[in-house]
Design a protein around this nucleic acid. Structure first.
Length: 559
RNA sequence: UGGGGUGUGGCCAAGUUGGUAAGGCACAGGACUUUGACUCCUGCAUGCGCUGGUUCGAGUCCAGUCGCCCCAGCCA
C-alpha cells in the first residue's frame, strides 16, 4: 500500500535523493522542533512522520527531538512531558538525540557578540511601539532607528548590560542590522534578543535575555548539523533570514530549509491557540478529550498509532494549502480494526423482546467467532434466553420501504441464534413501545432455516438474563461545519453541542466486563470501541466510540 | 498598491527531458454476505484557474490575466 517507489517521491524526498546522489550529503539529519507550549496534534504528527520517516529511510541517518524553549513566558515542563509521551506512543525513538534550544544559549550569546563586533547587530532603545512604527508597513519601507549606528564598543557595553540584568524589560533589544527598506519585513532589522526577567525551566535564572526564534532556530539546526530543516509554509518568508544569520556566523553547517503545507482537517480546528481555548473554557474535557485532534485525544479515543501513521503517509506532501477530509482518517482506523478487533454483541439502546414460544427455563448456548476476519481469533460462547434485548432502532412499527430489520409480521435472524418473527408490540400508556413479542423457529438453530428460506435481516441481541449494563460514550464531530469560524467569525459558535453522548443503559455480553483497559472491540453492527484506560475500573469497563461502521442504511434513509 | 507562495475531478495527490491525465478517499451501479460492515467487480477530468502564443503535438515551454494562502510579535 505504501509504495514510495522511485517515481512517487514527494518533492522533499526528491530533493533529498538528489542531495544524496550528488554527494552534497552522505546521509540525512532531520529534526522535530516543538515549542513546549501546548499538546501535539495530528498536524504536528505530519511533521513528525515526515522527519522521522526520512530518518528511517536513509542509512546512517539521525533524527533529533529539539524543544524550542526560547520563550519561558509561554512554555511549561508539563508540555515537554506530554510531548515526549505522545512521540513515544507514535513510535518515535530519538535515542540520544534529545536537545533543547536552551542548550545553545551560551553559544547563541557568543554568536551575538560576533555579530555586534562585525557591525551586524546593534542595541536598540526604541520601545516596542516605536519599533513597530519604524518598521513601516507591507507597502511602505521602514526607516532606520536612531540607535542603528552606534559604535561597536557601545553596543558591546549595552548588550552586556542587558545580559547582566541592569536594563529594565522592554527598554532595549538587540537587533540584526540588515535592511529597513527590504520588501521582506523579516529582513527589516529583526529583533534577536529581548529582555525577560523570567525564570527558565532549564536554565533557571542564568539568563534574563532570551533569543528570538529566527535567530535561534537556524543556529540550532546548524549546530546539530541538520541537513534538511523542514517547516511549514508560513516560514517561507523567513528563509532569507535563516540563511542570512548562517552566512554571517562561523557555524559548522548550513542546513537547507524547505517548507511544506501543514495539515488541515475539516470539522475540527488545528491550532494550539484554538485548542487551548477549548480546553480552558471547558468546551471539551481536556487536551486528551476523545473529540480533540490532539495525539492524546486520538489515543484516548482509541485510534492506533499505526492508523495515524498510515493516514499521514497516504495524504501526500505538497505546498498547496489543503484540507483533508477527516473521513479519510476514519477510513484507516476502520480498515485496521476490521482485521484486528474482536466482535462483541452490545445493545446500545435496548428494547426488550420476549420469545413467547420459547420455554421459560430453556437456555441455549451458541459459539460465535470472535473475528470472522481472523481465524486465529478464536470463539466465545453466548447464552440465549426467552427474554432478550435488541436495538431499539432495529424495530419499526411502521417501516419505510427497504427496511429489512424487524417489524410486525417480519422474520429476521438473531445473529448466530434463531430466526424470529414479530407478532406483537406492547406499549405503555403514552404509546411508547416497551416490548416486542416474537416467536422463534426451533428448527433454525444457529440462524439458518432447514428449508433454506433466505432471511435478509440479521440483528444483534443480548440475553436479558445474562447481559450486563455498561457505559458507552458516543462521539460525533466536534464542530457542525467543515471550516469552523469561517462563516460565523468565531469557531466557538460552530461547536457541535451534541458531540458527546453518554449511554449508561447499554447491555453487553457478560464477557466484555473482563476487558482490560485499552482494548478495542467491534460492537457488532455498530462500530469500533475502546475501553477507556482512565475511567474504566476492574470489572466495569467504560467504552469510547472510536468510529462507527460505515452505514449505508443511514444514507438510504435520508433519501 | 510591497514581498513570498500556490492553482490537476467533491477531498487529497502523481504527472522527471513537451507525446496524448497514476493512485487513494468519497460517490454511483453490481456481485457476495448470519455485520445494510468487510471483500470483489464496474463507472467516475475530451481535460489540468483563465486567455492567447510556440509546436506535428502542451498539465508540462512563453506571454498575459484571475483567484486563493502567508507576512507589518520584544510569539514560534
Amino acid at each position: 500500500m505504501t509504495e514510495n517507489n522511485e517515481r512517487n517521491l514527494d518533492f522533499i524526498r526528491e530533493i533529498i535523493k538528489n542531495d544524496l546522489e550528488s554527494g552534497k550529503h552522505k546521509t540525512t539529519v532531520t529534526r522535530f522542533p516543538p515549542e513546549p507550549n501546548g499538546f501535539l496534534h495530528i498536524g504536528h504528527a505530519k511533521a513528525i512522520c515526515l522527519n522521522y520517516g526520512i530518518s528511517k529511510e536513509n542509512e546512517g541517518a539521525r533524527f533529533h527531538l529539539r524543544f524550542d524553549d526560547t520563550n519561558p513566558e509561554k512554555e511549561e515542563v508539563k508540555y515537554i512531558e506530554a510531548i515526549k509521551k505522545d512521540l513515544e506512543w507514535l513510535g518515535v525513538d530519538w535515542g540520544e538525540n534529545l536537545f533543547y534550544a536552551s542548550d545553545y544559549f551560551d553559544k547563541l550569546y557568543e554568536y551575538a557578540i560576533i555579530l555586534i563586533k562585525d557591525g551586524k547587530a546593534y542595541v536598540d532603545e526604541l520601545n516596542a511601539e516605536e519599533i513597530r512604527e519604524y518598521r513601516g508597513t507591507l507597502t511602505k519601507p521602514g526607516k532606520n532607528s536612531p540607535y542603528r549606528d552606534r559604535n561597536i564598543e557601545e553596543n558591546l557595553e549595552l548588550f552586556e548590560k542587558m545580559r547582566s540584568g541592569e536594563v529594565e524589560e522592554g527598554k532595549m533589544v538587540l537587533r540584526a542590522k540588515i535592511d529597513m527598506a527590504s520588501p521582506n519585513i523579516n529582513m527589516r532589522d529583526p529583533v534577536i534578543y529581548r529582555i525577560k526577567n523570567i525564570h527558565h525551566p532549564r536554565t533557571g535564572d542564568k539568563w534574563c535575555i532570551y533569543p528570538m526564534y529566527d535567530y535561534t532556530h537556524c543556529i540550532s539546526d546548524a549546530l546539530e548539523n541538520i541537513t534538511h530543516s523542514l517547516c511549514t509554509l508560513e516560514f517561507e518568508d523567513h528563509r532569507p533570514l535563516y540563511d542570512w544569520f548562517l552566512d554571517q556566523l562561523p557555524v559548522p553547517s548550513h542546513p537547507r530549509q524547505i517548507e511544506f503545507a501543514r495539515l488541515n482537517l475539516n470539522y475540527t480546528v488545528m491550532s494550539k491557540r484554538h485548542l487551548l481555548k477549548l480546553v480552558e473554557e471547558n468546551h471539551v474535557d481536556g487536551w486528551d478529550d476523545p473529540r480533540m485532534p490532539t495525539i492524546s485525544g486520538l489515543r484516548r479515543r482509541g485510534y492506533t498509532s499505526a492508523s495515524i501513521w498510515e493516514f499521514l503517509s497516504q495524504i501526500g506532501l505538497a505546498k498547496v494549502v489543503s484540507t483533508v477530509d477527516i473521513g479519510l482518517l476514519e477510513y484507516f482506523i476502520r480498515q485496521e480494526l476490521n482485521k484486528t478487533s474482536d466482535r462483541v454483541l452490545v445493545v446500545l439502546d435496548p428494547l426488550k423482546v420476549v420469545i413467547t414460544n420459547y420455554p421459560d427455563d430453556k437456555e441455549d448456548e451458541f459459539e460465535l467467532p470472535n473475528n470472522p476476519e481472523d481465524e486465529n481469533a478464536g470463539t466465545r460462547k453466548v447464552k440465549f434466553t426467552k427474554e432478550l434485548y435488541i436495538e431499539r432502532g432495529d424495530f419499526m412499527e411502521d417501516p419505510p420501504k427497504k427496511f429489512f430489520r424487524l417489524f410486525p409480521g417480519k422474520e429476521v435472524r438473531l445473529k448466530s441464534a434463531y430466526l424470529v418473527r414479530c407478532n406483537d408490540v406492547i406499549k405503555d400508556d403514552n404509546g411508547n413501545i416497551t416490548e416486542i413479542h416474537c416467536t422463534y423457529d426451533p428448527d433454525s438453530k444457529g440462524g439458518s432455516a432447514p428449508d433454506g428460506r433466505k432471511v435478509k435481516g440479521t440483528l444483534h441481541w443480548v440475553s436479558a438474563k445474562y447481559g450486563k449494563k455498561i457505559e458507552v460514550r458516543m462521539f460525533d464531530r466536534l464542530f457542525n461545519v467543515e471550516n469552523p469560524g469561517k462563516e460565523t467569525g468565531d469557531y466557538i459558535d460552530d461547536l457541535n453541542r451534541d458531540s458527546k453522548k453518554v449511554l449508561k443503559n447499554s447491555i453487553a455480553e457478560p464477557g466484555i466486563l473482563e476487558a482490560e483497559k485499552g482494548k478495542r472491540f467491534q460492537f457488532f453492527r455498530h462500530g469500533y470501541f475502546f475501553s477507556d484506560p482512565i475511567d474504566s475500573t476492574e470489572g466495569s469497563p467504560v467504552f469510547n466510540q472510536i468510529v462507527s461502521l460505515k452505514d449505508t442504511w443511514e444514507k438510504v434513509k435520508k433519501k
